[in-house]
Amino acid sequence: MADQLTEEQIAEFKEAFSLFDKDGDGTITTKELGTVMRSLGQNPTEAELQDMINEVDADGNGTIDFPEFLTMMARKMKDTDSEEEIREAFRVFDKDGNGYISAAELRHVMTNLGEKLTDEEVDEMIREADIDGDGQVNYEEFVQMMTAK
């Protein structure tokens, strides 16, 4: 299944994987998964984290390695993001709930994920998604960005 991913997608997933893999040992533990999910405003229980890991832990060693992570991402993409997942993601970014993602809100979430971005990089990300040019990202623009192939 992971063989249907483009090189660009694999590179993006590698970057995402390293955000989860806090200690850089090449595997994601339940603790690391929990840290990232909490930084995104989720509050999973230990059991939920274990279930999430077990779902993709092909070799049964209790952690997720990069090939397992790729399989999980490929699977998720095949079920292409349901509207509800996209709306949920939008809410994570839209901290003040005004229906727009500002540069400050984007920077806040990315920083929580451990991504240190310059102001230019954040502005560039907003510009790429900002179709109507108002300097922020509304829900429609967010959907376009998330579903762009």
Rank of each mutant, 00 (worst) to 15 (best):
A2N: 15
A2T: 12
D3S: 04
Q4N: 15
Q4M: 07
T6N: 00
E7P: 02
E8K: 07
E8G: 12
E8N: 15
Q9S: 08
Q9C: 12
I10T: 10
I10W: 12
I10F: 09
A11R: 01
A11F: 07
E12C: 15
E12S: 06
F13T: 00
F13S: 10
K14G: 00
E15I: 14
E15W: 05
F17C: 01
F17W: 02
S18A: 11
S18H: 04
S18Y: 09
S18P: 11
L19Q: 13
L19R: 04
L19S: 06
F20G: 06
D21P: 15
D21T: 00
K22Y: 06
K22E: 12
D23N: 13
G24L: 05
G24C: 10
D25E: 07
T27G: 11
T27I: 11
T27E: 06
I28E: 02
I28S: 08
T29I: 12
T30P: 08
K31W: 09
E32Y: 01
E32C: 10
E32A: 14
E32F: 07
E32M: 03
L33K: 00
L33W: 00
G34K: 03
G34C: 12
T35A: 11
T35S: 11
T35Q: 10
V36L: 03
M37S: 03
M37R: 07
R38D: 00
R38F: 03
S39D: 01
S39T: 10
S39K: 04
G41D: 13
G41L: 06
G41S: 10
Q42T: 04
Q42G: 07
Q42K: 05
N43W: 04
P44A: 13
T45A: 14
T45M: 03
T45E: 15
E46D: 09
E46R: 09
E46N: 01
A47T: 12
L49P: 01
Q50N: 08
Q50D: 04
D51R: 05
M52W: 06
M52K: 07
M52V: 10
N54Q: 06
E55G: 12
E55L: 02
E55K: 10
V56S: 05
V56T: 04
D57P: 01
A58K: 01
A58V: 13
A58D: 09
D59L: 14
D59N: 11
G60E: 00
G60C: 12
G62Q: 15
G62F: 12
T63I: 12
T63S: 06
T63E: 03
D65S: 13
D65Q: 09
F66D: 01
E68A: 14
E68R: 00
E68Q: 04
E68V: 05
F69D: 06
F69P: 04
F69A: 05
F69T: 02
L70C: 04
L70W: 12
L70A: 07
T71E: 03
A74G: 13
A74M: 06
R75E: 14
M77I: 11
K78D: 07
K78Q: 13
D79A: 13
D79Y: 10
T80G: 10
D81S: 00
D81L: 06
D81T: 08
S82W: 07
S82Y: 04
S82L: 12
S82K: 06
E83R: 01
E83M: 07
E84D: 13
E84G: 12
E85I: 14
I86D: 14
I86K: 05
R87Q: 08
E88F: 04
E88M: 06
E88Y: 14
E88A: 07
A89V: 09
F90D: 10
F90S: 02
F90K: 04
R91S: 03
V92L: 13
V92I: 11
D94F: 03
K95L: 04
K95M: 03
D96L: 02
G97R: 14
G97V: 07
N98D: 10
G99W: 08
Y100E: 15
Y100T: 02
Y100G: 15
I101R: 00
S102T: 06
S102Y: 00
A103V: 08
E105Q: 00
R107W: 04
R107F: 03
R107C: 10
R107Y: 01
H108P: 09
H108S: 11
V109G: 05
M110S: 04
M110V: 10
T111G: 05
N112F: 02
L113P: 04
L113H: 02
G114D: 03
G114L: 06
G114Q: 02
G114E: 05
E115R: 00
K116S: 07
K116P: 14
K116V: 09
L117T: 03
L117R: 05
T118P: 07
T118G: 01
D119H: 08
D119F: 08
E121Y: 10
E121Q: 07
V122M: 14
M125N: 00
M125L: 13
M125R: 04
M125K: 01
I126M: 14
R127L: 14
R127T: 07
E128T: 06
D130Y: 08
I131R: 13
I131A: 09
I131F: 13
D132V: 08
D132Q: 04
D132Y: 08
D132E: 08
G133R: 10
G133Y: 15
G133W: 01
G133K: 09
D134R: 04
D134T: 15
D134K: 00
G135P: 08
G135N: 06
G135V: 07
G135R: 10
Q136G: 01
Q136P: 07
V137D: 04
N138V: 12
Y139C: 09
Y139K: 04
Y139L: 00
E140F: 04
E141N: 01
F142C: 02
F142M: 12
F142T: 07
Q144D: 05
Q144W: 05
Q144L: 14
Q144R: 12
Q144P: 10
M146I: 09
A148E: 00
